[in-house]
């Protein structure tokens, strides 16, 4: 294809996106569009899968049967999101195995928030309330993103995430209306999860490398800083209802802006965790790699069995 032809295709492609048309897997697309979507969707899928681990850490210790059932269902939802997103990414010509390989070798990233440990039951509340809350803010705009399979996956994912967020908030509410010991547990969880949740919305706009292109392709509708402000503005009143204190002495309502001013985020910590040196990076990756490598014989057996079944069926036909 000549360069002129490619440019023409690109123009048509950008025009389709501008008209809010969905791009489907078999449509022509610029290579960069394909690669960007593989990167973002696989990263999203990895986040769901690695994100199962900190919460799974409390399944066996959930305080009541009702909470245990809800937590199991939630972690199962996350596995389902991962499955769904890997499948959506596969439509772009990459296999799940290749994506796993990228995760296990550190080539692909996942959300850094999951590199923090879950130390008490209240962390199950804080994760639902804050982490899923921040995720929803990130993800709701993706329901209208340009790539069809991703947009459709996100519609379902967002519905479930919003349920998880309410569930997390309800855990917090119960703790805050409980004994002083329970309320302390809730405050301690907020103290530990607040700043990492703000970081979850990504580096500041000046430091964000992908924003401009992603905006054009509707992979992003608002900048990281706008999303972060939205998250803070919606979360502070929720903390007030709980009677908890946001661990930021500089947090103050700004009448003029109609938003909260907030303190300086520790970006050194953010980059340290992103680069693999957070409290749980190594453990999380070890757990994933062990599950994958330890399960190889099982997957091999399933393949061998399927092959034998196929041979048997063919023999029967003959």
């Amino acid at each position: 294809m000549s360069e002129e032809q490619i440019r023409s295709l690109e123009r048509q492609f950008e025009a389709r996106i501008a008209r809010d048309e969905k791009i489907e897997p078999k449509d022509w697309m610029p290579e960069k569009y394909r690669q960007t979507h593989i990167r973002q969707m696989s990263q999203h899928a990895h986040s769901e899968i690695v994100g199962m681990l900190p919460e799974a850490n409390w399944i066996t210790r959930a305080p009541s049967l009702r909470r245990k059932v809800a937590l199991l269902a939630k972690v199962q939802d996350e596995a389902g999101h991962g499955l769904y997103l890997y499948s959506a990414a596969e439509t772009l010509g990459i296999s799940r195995e290749e994506m796993y390989e990228q995760l296990h070798t550190g080539k692909a990233k996942y959300s850094s928030i999951f590199n923090y440990p879950t130390l008490t039951w209240a962390d199950m509340g804080a994760i639902g309330w804050l982490v899923d809350g921040a995720a929803i803010i990130n993800q709701v705009p993706l329901c209208n993103t340009s790539f069809g399979p991703y947009a459709r996956a996100m519609v379902r994912v967002c519905k479930e995430e919003s349920f998880h967020q309410r569930q997390g908030y309800e855990i917090m509410l119960k703790l805050c209306n409980g004994t002083p010991e329970q309320k302390d547990m809730a405050q301690d969880a907020l103290n530990r999860w607040w700043w990492p949740s703000l970081m979850m919305l990504g580096p500041t706009d000046e430091a964000s490398v992908h924003t401009e292109q992603s905006m054009k392709w509707k992979l992003k509708r608002k900048t990281n800083d706008e999303l972060r402000q939205q998250f803070i503005d919606q979360t502070v009143p929720q903390a007030d209802i709980l009677g908890l204190t946001i661990p930021d002495p500089d947090l103050k309502w700004n009448e003029e802006r109609g938003s909260y001013d907030f303190g300086v985020i520790n970006w050194d910590e953010f980059w340290q965790v992103v680069k693999g040196h957070g409290p749980m990076n190594k453990e999380r990756m070890k757990a994933r790699v062990n599950a994958w490598e330890g399960g190889e014989w099982v997957r091999d057996a399933a393949m061998a069995f399927a092959e034998k079944q196929r041979e048997r069926r063919e023999k029967q036909v003959v």
């Binding site: 049967l65 199991l72 199962q76 499955l83 599950a291 099982v298």
Partner: peptide, 27 residues
Amino acid sequence: GELTGHGPSLETDIACTNISLDLFGQV
């Protein structure tokens, strides 16, 4: 419930978690 997140494949992970969920519902 101990196995959630550590299954040999995503599909078996989901299935075992789901069975656990059923059992606790019964309980």
